[in-house]
Write a protein that binds this DNA or RNA. Structure first.
Lengths: 351, 351
DNA sequence: ATTGGCACTCTTCCGGCTGGAGTGCTAATT
DNA sequence: AATTAGCACTCCAGCCGGAAGAGTGCCAAT
């Protein structure tokens, strides 16, 4: 789908723009009459019909049946979003809500929840925010507790106050004292580093000459390795306002709705999609079937990655029907991402 | 609603039973003709009509309109469930699934999830399981870590490997060493006791003569108090198979469905309802509006409390449309509760 | 190149009709 | 006295046909 804009003259594009905007606001197929009156370009319905026939040939719009108006296709929306759309700034009230909600410093996971709820509430659609990637958070404290048999409970704290825990299986039995010593050792050398750094360092230690370490140190390193191995796949997200989606007539089909909600609970597909979105910096939009997931066939997803310290750590967005007010949602998601990123920035956290 | 069974002769009751069973299996209003053929009692349609008129006068059944059959009212279902129902034992396959799913010893919270999913999957409705009440679990380890300012991160482990954490605000700044000492002190005296016991003991200490304690001990006790105060309200549950509910025609109304799913996400009402159910030991049933929550108006909830060491610690159940196969669901929920209770019993946990 | 006009298509809505299902009542039967 | 057969009645669901409305496509005029 290279830019079709070139295949079309200015007038056709303006017409498409007017049509999409009209359809988004009214939700009904729009005919030549209304466009004739509505749009700034003074054209007769007949002319508009001719232009619309061209647009239909290009696959940008289509009509549900002979005597209905036209509605945009996915390609039509895409062209609209890419080249025609004029974003509207948020109004003061919305901005204020966002700003207030995301300025109080709090537990990061609470903040994620707040962001998700704000997205849902202010857009009347569903909001989604991924948890910040673990890799990039910094290790603050680690500690081991003995469980029965050869299992060890690892507790580690990241950033200010986020606690994670995991059970690892060791190949020998450790006493509480040994474990405490291992924790102290790891704290002394890795505290303050990012998890990614820690993992890399641990791997390096294990590959390097191990002669210079005593057994206790080696055990500690091994346990650290078990703790931090392949935890990266365990991404997650916080969803809010799913039920808002039940109000939209375009999602009224019970089957579509079920598929969508199933995707929400199984999470996997949604995570993949959000992962994709995270790769592209800034605002990213998936319209209808573009996402590639059937569950999202009649939905659009507007996302933006959010960053802490200029490093992308997560992504947030809004899920709604394909027919959504992109010109408002896009800046909205953009601003929310920036505010969330700023709010999560530890450097500016009050003591 | 004292037992109306006395107001009715045996025949009427059998008729009601047949009617309810028929309606549950077919989902359509049942008329006198089908009952005449269907039921064991050999009666002509005319006689059945007379009896049905009586049942309607008593408010046990009603007809949606003149020329439709009858469907049970909530009272009718209630009478059926209380006095008429003949429970069907689970079949071997279902029992096996439950047994296998709940016999592997695992993290308690995983087990809760498995139970919920099994309930949903095998009943094709929604499953719900509350987390075991914290009060009754036993404290295994507690520890404090300093955060910025006067905030302290408390980490405590219960049972085998469940980790909880909470941030408390203290009235003075503690060093890491002081906090470690406090943790060690609390571990030495409270480790192995139930949280309820710990809370009671802590309160007693604070009220008693404090002369015999040094400052460090007092600080430790105070922090324990902050940690365990009023945490009991923080109950939670795990839901599964919500989307199964979208298939039922009786819940097809968008508004009902939205209310129901809103209740699921806000949790509060559901928790209250489950709390009620937990008070009554054994299987408890809420039919339609009986629950008192509008969101559940067209649903029934079949629950059973589950116990560890003969002490009720939680409740689980199935949520579905009022028209559900109670005779199968009831024993099913009952068995699941017993299996879950047994699986959670630490005494029988393999080392 | 644009526009007015016109025939055509398709949906939606409404009223009326019909068949079926089920009831309530009454009178007959056991 | 309880049960049953018979019958008139009601109500719903489905179907048909017609009318109204919306919008198109095409052709001829500007």
């Amino acid at each position: 789908m290279s830019d079709r804009a070139k295949d079309l003259n200015e007038r056709s594009l303006q017409l498409l723009k007017a049509l999409v905007e009209r359809y988004i606001s009214d939700g009904q197929p729009v005919g030549s009459r209304v466009l004739s009156k509505d749009s700034a370009l003074n054209l007769s319905p007949a002319t508009i019909r001719n232009v619309m026939a061209d647009l239909e040939d290009l696959g940008l719009i289509h009509s549900p049946h002979t005597s209905a108006g036209r509605i945009p296709t996915v390609s039509g929306y895409r062209l609209f979003v890419n080249s025609l759309l004029t974003v509207k700034p948020l109004n003061a009230k919305e901005l204020m809500r966002l700003y207030q909600g995301l300025s109080e410093r709090d537990d990061a996971s609470n903040m994620i929840g707040v962001a998700s709820r704000l997205l849902a509430e202010l857009t009347k659609m569903a909001g989604v925010v991924t948890l910040p990637r673990r890799e990039l958070v910094c290790l603050r404290h680690i500690e081991f507790l003995p469980l029965s048999h050869k299992r060890v409970l690892v507790i580690f704290v990241t950033n200010e106050q986020e606690v994670h825990n995991k059970v690892i299986h060791t190949d020998k039995v450790f006493s509480a004292a040994e474990l405490q010593q291992a924790g102290a050792y790891l704290n002394s050398i890795y505290c303050g580093h990012s998890l990614a750094t820690v993992r890399a360092a641990v791997l390096k230690e294990l590959q390097d000459d191990q002669e210079r370490m005593n057994q206790a140190m080696l055990d500690a390193i091994k346990m650290a390795q078990l703790t931090f191995e392949s935890d990266s796949g365990k991404d997650d997200y916080v969803l809010a306002g799913q039920t808002n989606l039940m109000g939209f007539s375009e999602l009224s089909d019970r089957d579509h709705l079920k598929k969508l909600f199933d995707a929400f609970t199984h999470k996997q597909d949604v995570i993949h999609l959000l992962d994709q979105a995270m790769k592209a910096e800034g605002v990213q939009i998936f319209i209808g079937e573009e996402s590639g997931y059937q569950a999202f066939d009649h939905c659009s997803l507007v996302t933006s990655s959010y960053s802490v310290n200029d490093e992308v750590v997560g992504v947030l967005g809004v899920i709604g029907p394909t027919r959504m007010a992109y010109e408002k949602i896009i800046p909205f998601v953009d601003v929310t991402a920036k505010l969330l990123g700023a709010a999560l920035n530890p450097k500016t956290t009050a003591p």
